[in-house]
Design a protein around this nucleic acid. Structure first.
Lengths: 127, 127
DNA sequence: TAACTGTTCTATTATTAGTATAGCAGAACT
DNA sequence: AGTTCTGCTATACTAATAATAGAACAGTTA
């Protein structure tokens, strides 16, 4: 688990953690069916409170990325082959829109935006 | 100023406001050199506190999108032709990465991601 | 049985979000 | 000149969130 938390960041710790777990899954370094470390183990590993890790896990549950089996552990859901839910798709677009608008206003061209998005995809999936 | 605030949203009001102003600029409905309404006028218009609007404006200043002339008003900076700053570019990418990773994990294909990004660009710029 | 698991409860501290009121000094307009 | 409007500042308050902390419960697993 190659996770690094920056306590001084303006991004909450539980968000940093959730994002990095999502990245690891996108990269294929964590796969569907894999178990995440226990909240206590990961909290100790990251020198962070148990409740903070717990909050990250539940955010991932809320996004539909993992499932938690009480008294047992957290398990990564397989990446759905049926494609993305309409609801999730809409949520992604709503998150994307303000960032793209900001990029345009700051002088980034549409071509550059597409190019950077591709770079990120290559970085994550190797495509 | 076609701005609509949802007080019950989990997104802070000052963020909603800043994002919508950015969108208006990206759409060309607000142009460089245009003056934004005074903090009091907009606050009254939106039934929101003056300080909340003030915070939005200062966030836009921090992003380099508007400039505030004390005792006078807030003016939109012209969209820079020289292209985006390296610093701003890096910030945009860091915001983009976790969203794209989440989209992948939720089953959105790279092609779909590019397609949706294009749709947003068309919606904003008409390209 | 014993260690480990997620869950729940209570509590505290610090920060942020939002509202509210008031006053200041410069700019703009009449 | 004087009034109004402007952004700015200061203070105060409520509510919510972020993060930590310790403890206990009950089911799982070795």
């Amino acid at each position: 688990m190659f996770i690094q938390i920056e306590p001084t960041s303006d991004i909450p710790i539980y968000t940093q953690l959730a994002n990095q777990i999502i990245e690891l899954i996108a990269r294929g370094q964590l796969k569907g069916g894999d178990a995440l470390p226990s909240v206590r183990a990961l909290a100790s590993d990251l020198s962070v409170n148990m409740h903070t890790v717990n909050k990250s896990y539940h955010e991932l549950v809320h996004k539909g990325i993992i499932r938690i089996v009480p008294k047992s552990g957290a398990i990564i859901n397989p990446i759905v082959q049926e494609g993305i839910t309409n609801e999730n798709c809409h949520r992604i677009i709503e998150q994307l829109k303000p960032i793209i608008a900001e990029a345009l206003v700051l002088g980034m061209s549409p071509e550059e935006i597409g190019q950077h998005a591709s770079s990120i995809l290559v970085d994550l999936k190797g495509e």
